[in-house]
Design a protein around this nucleic acid. Structure first.
Lengths: 232, 232
DNA sequence: AATATAGGGTGTATTTTTTACACTAAGCAA
DNA sequence: TTGCTTAGTGTAAAAAATACACCCTATATT
């Protein structure tokens, strides 16, 4: 790439929107920045991409460095490159999202000191974020909201074994509306991507619900693709 | 952006997939490259983005330079950044698509000599393209195929006044399957986004069909958005 | 004038999908 | 035993999607 006029050299980065679901709340993974600009602000995990790595692997690396999470498959959803989006100049960012299983608590902590801490922030308590990250988050949220209504992708967020009521709660939180119990169950079961287990919920002080598992094989059959997630 | 280690400086570009529809054929706009690498090959109109312009305006500028087309609204659909995709090194490309009206003929010709010519290539005759552009094209095509099945966006491709049969042909070409005439008409009219005109087709040697117009106001009402297209 | 040709235009019955809606059952706790 | 809380279930109605075939009309041809 010798001889290229300077004005064609740009900086680019990835940002990751990682969704989790815990205690009935949808959360996303934020870091608290430890560097200027926006030192002390919350931001999406993101950083510059090295030009010797693919964008996907950069996304994985950066997510790991900032939060300790490894091996998460992320899906690209949009690229942001407005001129004013970064105070230091033109930075283009490729944004990814993922949904991950967050049994009880998945602890997250930065392995570099670029971030002071990483937190699972409830979506409903989201503060204003650094750079244009609030906007990136909103766009990712629209995306999953839209996607979930025609493709059952939300299992990634639940524990491996879950009840239909838990699943419905998750849908209700994402779509931000009440759903009819009977219709919801009918439809989910009709997708034929759940495996009913011989096991019940434990530790509840009322009638225990049946547990289900998401069945990847059936999913692939019906939706004609792998779940997690096709590489570029 | 001073002091930044060199490995974070990247080159990036935009590529445009422009769909047209003419003589019953779906076409896309290609250029014949006049520079190495891939000199003499067909490619999507695309070029490097200057770091003083937004991605959208770069896309507009580049499309104009290579094809003479101006003021086309394009929608971003994916960003490609695999390591091996450009022989000279890492280039990240943000890909856009648009559908445009191609009455009879819209002539296209490069205004720079970076391209030797621009052509409307029938999709069914597509040659292997430069770089990974064949792949980019395939991805764009999946995208519009998918989108058209839940949102009537194809009007952009037709002349201002069109018959329902023309519209149906277009759908059949994009979806690559036959549709039932009565059901198609019923459904299109039920969308309530067409305005029936007091006018008929001319110059045909059989019973002339009624002409329709796409009605942006009604579209916006039903789909709750503008047609052409939201800015980043 | 008569006829041929080619696409224009229309309705109905059937199936499938979506929606609306309310009670009994089971398990635990007091 | 009773009370509480969530689990689990079916049906009727409406809406949407599908399958399917014939007559109409404008022009061209003889």
């Amino acid at each position: 790439m010798e001889n290229l006029p300077l004005q064609f050299e740009s900086i680019f980065s990835v940002d990751c929107v990682i969704f989790g679901f815990d205690e009935g709340e949808l959360r996303i993974l934020l870091i608290e920045r430890n560097e200027e600009p926006f030192k002390g602000w919350f931001a999406l995990p993101g950083n510059l991409v090295d030009n010797t790595e693919s964008i996907e692997s950069a996304a994985e690396r950066i997510l790991y460095e900032l939060t300790g999470l490894k091996g998460i498959f992320m899906e690209q959803f949009y690229t942001f490159g407005a001129l004013g989006r970064h105070p230091l100049g033109r930075v283009i960012t490729v944004a990814y999202y993922a949904m991950i299983r967050l049994n009880g608590q998945k602890d997250v902590k930065p392995v570099t000191d670029y971030a002071r801490q990483a937190v699972w922030m409830p979506v409903k308590d989201m503060p204003e974020l650094a750079f244009d990250h609030s906007r990136i988050f909103r766009k990712s949220f629209e995306k999953i909201k839209n996607k979930i209504s025609y493709q059952p992708i939300a299992f990634e967020l639940l524990p491996e074994k879950f009840t239909l009521t838990q699943l419905q709660n998750l849908y209700e939180v994402i779509l931000d509306k009440k759903l009819d119990k009977r219709n919801f169950r009918k439809k989910m079961l009709a997708y034929d991507i759940l495996k009913e287990l011989d096991e019940k919920q434990k530790g509840v002080s009322y009638r225990a619900a049946k547990l289900y598992k998401f069945d990847k094989r059936k999913y692939a059959k019906h939706f004609n693709k792998e779940l997690s997630f096709s590489k570029e």
